[in-house]
Design a protein around this nucleic acid. Structure first.
Lengths: 255, 255
DNA sequence: ACTGTTCCTTGACGCAGATCAAGTTGGAAG
DNA sequence: CTTCCAACTTGATCTGCGTCAAGGAACAGT
């Protein structure tokens, strides 16, 4: 069951790179239901940007002249207090949308944690397109509602879970969503590379990097995960990991 | 400056009840820009529901046959784990929207904490209206983006702030948004009644009710707030409270 | 091979906030 | 007025996680 879901996702990732190596966002983000003439308009205002690992995409307060989707790589959204405490508020994986139509200034710091390719649209003409094209606005609404649900689920993690549960929750999310995800069929085993440093994980989870390190070591000792090197993770039993995450939902498996 | 903002809000609240005692959501939520024929369609599918303090509006997983706006009173959105730990993920104040178009099941528990009046729309016809009426979809997108920002700001509170800062942050939010808000001109003093029990505050802040109680007592002892009874709060100096909240932003005051 | 750098691990200790346990207050019902 | 009960306060103690500190591993540059 967990397995079926994972296979479905894997297939999705495959078609994702086969059908449109040019711009995957056609399939999964704003232009999923666009007609050819709308796609032509999008082509006109579209351009690619690349960022190196560690490079900032934008800082909170910057004037934001584009919106766009992540094509490959992973970026983070975060907020920082004056005294330096920072909280990550979102993880941007391929197909995720960046930027808020109708607002000039960026509200968060966006940083590439791996090399990132983004498919950008100039903001003003994109907003015009959105105004003429109801289903683009619809698609954006759907995506925003999904993000809102994700943010609220994360509020439960931040407010009420223990350090160990927090780590397990993060691993669950990455196992489910990371496009580098891989599965050995039949066994339910999931293998992936952590796309974040211990410090970035700490900032996502509201912990310190030492606590993150200790809890990962503990999960390893208890055989919930197997670590090779510092980043390569094997989850022998996803159900066990979900249990550790204190997750009652089974991830929305419906068939 | 803080004062100007508060006066503006007060005026807004006044006009709010004067101009349309019937259904305030016309001014502030989905139908802010509707034409008369669209308003007529809304009238047809609209009905009111009332809930008593403490009563549940819906439970997570319930079939959701309506969407709507809070007209008066205060409700909470929360998530619960199997073992009973709960996290509030949103506070619903008058004009806030409830329900997700395009989804059957409720994702959260919604509970009225005071007596609540809601203006509801049957979900299916509302979705139809939204599909024919781009600016309704637009308004919903704007509102959803605002909620997403609020959720992300709260993630910083949950993940990185101390108990004292959390309490101050909550008081700040209530002082800014509660419609019962009142201000003694000239002094910058703000007066309001807490709409939540200590336990509800704890669930919002990821704390225990004892810690909430202690921190409120501490803020009172340090004269950041004045308490009469258990619920009636006077904030003699909003800037001081903002400082306690560790809030670098000045709340978006722009003029 | 040597050195520096970045990322990570592990240990020792302290403290903010949880937990457990009595009270107190104030309003509603009799 | 008295009783009752939910909402709140306050104290004593415990503990999970933060803080501080000392290394180790992997890797790039010289």
């Amino acid at each position: 069951m967990t397995q079926i879901k994972l296979e479905a996702r894997m297939n999705l990732n495959q078609s994702f790179s086969q059908e449109c190596s040019d711009c995957p966002i056609r399939h999964r983000a704003v232009c999923a239901r666009c007609e050819t003439d709308e796609l032509a308009r999008l082509e006109e205002i579209k351009y690619y940007r690349t960022f190196e690992a560690g490079q900032s995409v934008m800082w909170s307060g910057d004037k934001m002249d584009f919106v766009g989707s992540v094509v490959s790589g992973i970026a983070t959204l975060s907020q920082t207090m004056e005294d330096g405490r920072t909280q990550m508020v979102g993880l941007l994986l391929p197909s995720d949308f960046v930027g808020r139509p109708g607002r000039d200034g960026a509200a968060y710091d966006v940083v590439a944690t791996t090399d990132v390719v983004m498919c950008c649209f100039r903001r003003k003409p994109f907003e015009d397109l959105m105004n003429d094209t109801p289903h683009v606005a619809h698609r954006l609404l759907e995506m925003t509602l999904d993000e809102l649900d994700a943010a609220r689920e994360w509020m439960l993690v931040l407010g009420r879970k223990t350090a160990r549960e927090k780590i397990a929750s993060l691993l669950t999310i990455i196992a489910r969503r990371d496009v580098t995800l891989n599965m050995k069929t039949g066994t339910g085993q999931v293998v992936f590379d952590l796309p974040l440093t211990r410090e970035a994980m700490a900032d996502y989870l509201g912990l310190t990097l030492e606590t993150v390190s200790r809890q990962i070591s503990a999960l390893k000792k208890d055989k919930v995960i197997v670590l090779e090197g510092k980043r390569h993770v094997t989850v022998p039993d996803m159900d066990r990991l979900l249990e550790e995450a204190g997750d009652d939902s089974d991830g929305g498996v419906l068939g």
